[in-house]
Design a protein around this nucleic acid. Structure first.
Lengths: 433, 433
DNA sequence: AGTGGGTTTGAATCGAGGG
DNA sequence: ACCCTCGATTCAAACCCAC
C-alpha cells in the first residue's frame, strides 16, 4: 500500500536501469571518430572532429552572415563553434530526430547573494545570460525556436529546460509557433541550493517542456514500454528526481573552478534520450555548453549535433565526450514493442492451420461462445464479424481486443488465441533470418 | 543522510501539521456569520450571507455592465455570483492580502478517451473551459490578471494554478503586467490519472506560480519559519506532494456525480494560506468554483472573497463552507517570527543597564576583543562602529551579525549578546500586556 | 478522411479473512 | 479489539494509428 505524505522533501525509491550508472565518465581518451557510423544524413561524411591549431578541437564556423553556405549534410558528432542562429540556418531542414535545448535563463540577478556565513554564492552572471528586458529575451527565443523547428523532422520532438525566469515565455512562444506540448516535466533536485534569505520557497526544481513539431505529429518517438520496464513496471511520471551535477561529473578548470555555471546532470539527459529517441537517432543541442547532451548521446548510441558559441565550453565538451565509453550495443538495443510487432490477421491463423473453421472460441469465464468461420470472421448465432467486433458485441462494450478476449481449446485446456498470434510472429521472424 | 533515487514515483515522508487533518468536513451546519469579524475593509459591514429565495444562498450581482456601482467595502466571507471581470471592477482597490486563482485551463480536448476496460473518462468538457484559440485565452487572461492586480494591496501576493495547457501563457502575461514571480511550485499528485494510451508521461503534477504585485514589493508575507517548523525543520521546497481530491472531500450531487470537474484538495489551499497570509488576512478567489479557498480560509481564521459565475457551484460552495468548523484560534495564531520581532538597537541594551560602557566583548574563539562605548558603538583600537560593522571588520568579511558574533562575560562564562536582546524583547512583550 | 484493429493504469479505500 | 494482507472496487483537469 502506498502512503502519501505532504513533507516537501524528496525520497523516492527505485531506479532506472542504465541511468543510475552514468555518473562517472571514463578517463580514457577516445576519439569521436571511433563511434560507429550512424543514421541518416551522415552518408559520405567523415564524423571525425577537425582539430584546429588554436587548441579548440572543434569545427569552427568558417563564415558568418546570410551568405554562409548551407552544409551538405549533418555535421554528425561534431561541435560547431559559432552563433546558434547562424549555424542552425546552415543545417539541412528536417534532418534531426530530437532536440534538447538549455537556453540562457535570463536570471536577472540584480545584486550578489551571500550565504549566512557571508561567503558569496557563485551565481550565473555571465554576459550570455543578460538580456535588456523581456521583449529582447522573447525575440531571442522566437528566433532560435523557429530555427530549430525548421531543422526538425516532422515527427521529431523538442525538450527545453528552464526555470520560472524564462520557461513561461519559452512555453508560450513555442505554442504560438505551432509546436504542440506533450508534457511539462519537473526535474526535482535532490540537493538544491537552499534559500539563504528565507524569503521564498527553496527553488528545488526546474521545468522541461516536451513538445512535438505540430499538433498533427502523432508518430513521435516515445519509448513507453522501455521507461515503464525501467521504473518497476510503473508508467514514467512527469516528475523526475535527480541530484544536481556535482563531484567527479562536474567539469572544472585547472584552478578547480567549475567550467560552466549550469552544467546539467548526465542522468537527466540519459532519461530524455531513452524516452524520446531510438539508437542511431540524431540529437541536436543548439546550446551545447560543456556537452552533456553529446556525452549522453555517445554513451547511448545516439548521434549528436552540438552548437556552442563559447570556445572554452566547446573545448571542454570535446575532451569530455572523447573520454566517454559508449555502453555495449546490447545494453542499448531496442526491445521490440507490442506496437511495432507485425500485424497478423485472424484469417492467417486459420490459413496456417493453427485453428480450423467450425472450432469454438470462448471467453475466459465461459459466458460467451463463438464459431470460427472459414473467412477469418467468427459468429455468435446469425451475427458474424471480426474477433474484435464480436467480442465487443458479446460484452456490450464499444470495443474489445479479440486476441486476448477469446480462447480456444487445446488438450482440454483453454488458452487465449493470442498464443496463436505469437506462434505466427515467431515463425515470421525465423523466415526473415 | 538523504538518499535520492530516480524512480519517478512519489513516496515523501513527513507531514505538515494542520494540513493532514483537513480531509473531512464537519457535518454540523454552521453559518458564515459565526466567523469572527476580521481585518480591513469589513468595517461597518455585516459578514452575513444573504439567502435568496431561489435557493442560491449567495450574494447575487444586482446589475452588470460598466454602470454597476462600486461596492462600499469588501464583501467579506461572501460568495459573489457573477462575472469575474465585472465583479472585480466593483471591489475597492488595494483591498486584499492574497489572491488564489484557479482559472479555466483551456484544455483543448478533441476526442473522447476510454480506459483499457473501455469505460469512458469523464473529462472536462464544460463550456467555461472552451476558448476559440490561444489569442482569445490570452485576452481573457490579461483581463482578469489586470483586474486582480488593481484589487491587491501593494504587498499582496498572487497564486495561480494551471497545467501545461495554460500555465505558460499565464506566466508570461503576468510578467508582462509587472507582477514579479517569487517561485513556481509544482503540486505533485500522489494519485494522478494514468496515461491510458501510453503515448506520453503520466501527467502527474500541476504548476502554481507565486508572484508579488511588483518587483519592488519586498514586504510580502512569507511565513518561512512556520513552514520550516512544520516540515521537520527543513526549508519548504517548491515541490509539494498531495493526493488529488477524492473520497469524502469531493463534492458530489444527489446522483453521485462530481459537482465540479476540477475540485482542488483543501490541503493544497491550506498550505498556500499558511505560507503567504496571516490570520485575519483577506483572500480573494476570482474563480471560486466549489469554494475550496473559502473552506480553507474559514478553517484557518482567514477571511475570503469569492467570485463564481455558476450558481450551482456557488450554492455547493456555500453549503460546504457553512459546514466547516474553524480550527481553534490557538492552533492558528501566529508564532512570532524572527523578522516580526521588534528591532532592538544595541544602545538600548546599554541604556537598560544590561551591559556597561567599557565592558569587553569577544568572539566565541576569543580571537577578537572590542570595547563597548557609551553611544552604542563598539571599538577595536581606534576604530569604532556598530556591533555588526566591527564584527565584519574583525573577520575581514563584508558583513556580520554582531548579535550572534559578539559575546559578553557573565559569571565567568561568555554568552552571546543576543541573550540580552532576547531579555529586552521579553520585557517589551510584558509591558505590552 | 473514415473505418476499424488493437493497444492502453495506478492509488486509495473498504471489506473479508487469518492470525 | 486489533493488525495485517489480499483482492475487488472506485475513480481520476483527455492521450491512437494504419490502411
Amino acid at each position: 500500500m502506498q502512503k502519501w505524505h505532504s513533507r516537501s522533501q524528496p525520497s523516492d525509491t527505485g531506479c532506472l536501469p542504465g541511468a543510475a550508472k552514468v555518473g562517472r565518465v571514463s578517463s580514457v581518451a577516445y576519439r569521436l571518430s571511433n563511434m560507429r557510423s550512424q543514421s541518416a544524413g551522415a552518408a559520405g561524411r567523415k564524423s571525425q572532429i577537425k582539430v584546429l591549431r588554436t587548441g579548440i578541437s572543434a569545427v569552427r564556423s568558417v563564415a558568418s552572415g546570410a551568405s554562409a553556405p548551407a552544409r551538405q549534410g549533418l555535421p554528425l558528432n561534431e561541435i560547431i563553434v559559432g552563433d546558434c542562429l547562424e549555424e542552425l540556418a546552415r543545417l539541412p531542414e528536417e534532418s534531426v530526430d530530437l532536440v534538447f535545448a538549455d537556453p540562457p535563463y535570463n536570471l536577472q540577478l540584480e545584486n550578489s547573494l551571500s550565504r549566512p556565513d557571508q561567503s558569496l554564492v557563485d551565481g550565473v552572471d555571465d554576459d550570455w545570460d543578460k538580456f535588456a528586458n523581456f521583449s529582447a529575451y522573447d525575440r531571442f527565443t522566437r528566433d532560435w525556436l523557429a530555427a530549430v523547428r525548421r531543422v526538425m523532422k516532422p515527427d521529431a520532438t523538442l525538450f527545453v529546460i528552464g526555470s520560472y525566469h524564462n520557461i513561461f515565455r519559452v512555453g508560450a512562444i513555442l505554442q504560438d509557433q505551432g509546436y504542440w506540448i506533450l508534457n511539462d516535466i519537473v526535474w526535482r533536485k535532490s540537493n538544491p541550493m537552499p534559500n539563504f534569505r528565507g524569503r521564498r520557497f527553496t527553488n528545488a526544481h526546474e521545468t522541461l517542456i516536451w513538445a512535438a513539431k505540430s499538433a498533427g505529429a502523432k508518430n513521435y518517438r516515445f519509448n513507453y514500454e522501455l521507461l515503464k520496464a525501467g521504473n518497476e513496471d510503473c508508467q514514467m511520471r512527469s516528475d523526475w528526481l535527480f541530484p544536481i551535477c556535482t563531484g567527479a561529473e562536474r567539469l572544472k578548470d585547472a584552478a578547480g573552478r567549475k567550467t560552466h555555471p549550469t552544467q546539467k546532470p548526465e542522468a537527466l539527459l540519459v532519461r530524455v534520450l531513452l524516452a524520446a529517441s531510438a539508437p542511431g537517432a540524431v540529437v541536436l543541442d543548439p546550446f551545447f555548453g560543456t556537452g552533456t547532451t553529446g556525452a549522453a548521446a555517445k554513451r547511448l548510441g545516439r548521434g549528436f549535433v552540438g552548437i556552442e558559441r563559447d570556445e572554452t565550453y566547446a573545448a571542454a565538451a570535446l575532451a569530455r565526450i572523447n573520454a566517454v565509453e559508449p555502453l555495449p550495443e546490447s545494453a542499448v538495443a531496442e526491445a521490440p514493442s507490442k506496437r511495432s510487432e507485425p500485424r497478423i490477421p485472424f484469417s492467417a491463423v486459420i490459413e496456417a492451420g493453427l485453428i480450423r473453421p467450425g472450432d469454438i472460441l470462448a471467453d475466459e469465464k465461459k459466458r460467451h461462445f463463438a464459431v470460427v468461420r472459414a473467412d477469418g470472421a467468427i459468429s455468435i448465432g446469425a451475427v458474424a464479424g471480426s474477433i474484435h467486433k464480436i467480442g465487443a458485441l458479446a460484452q456490450g462494450l464499444p470495443a474489445c481486443n479479440g486476441w486476448t478476449f477469446w480462447q480456444f481449446q487445446r488438450g482440454g485446456e483453454y488458452e487465449p488465441i493470442d498464443a496463436l498470434r505469437s506462434l505466427m510472429r515467431a515463425s515470421l521472424r525465423e523466415a526473415a533470418e
